[in-house]
Amino acid sequence: MMNLLRLLGGRPATAPVARERLQILLAHERGLRGQPDLLGVLRSEILAVVSRHVVLDPEKVTVRMDRGKNVSTLEVDIEVPNSLERSMAAAT
């Protein structure tokens, strides 16, 4: 019946599209829910370890994660001021 109406010039049914989009989206969002802010935790712990040895500006630490199909990469970018490096070299 539904198909017949559509054949007779009705618009295509959009509900199946809505359903599929929701199923894909929610499967993804539910996966993220269990692990609250993994990057935030990583960032603060990395910051704590590095800060034990080097004086850092917390704003200059970025942690990024790229999820690939087979491999994911974790990218940690820490900016260390040159003046600090020199003072460390002088100390050792």
């Binding site: 539904m2 109406l5 009705g10 295509p12 049914a13 959009t14 509900a15």
Partner: peptide, 10 residues
């Protein structure tokens, strides 16, 4: 019924 709205089952 016309497929324009998510059904209860969906």
């Amino acid at each position: 019924a016309r497929g324009e709205m998510l059904s209860i089952e969906d």
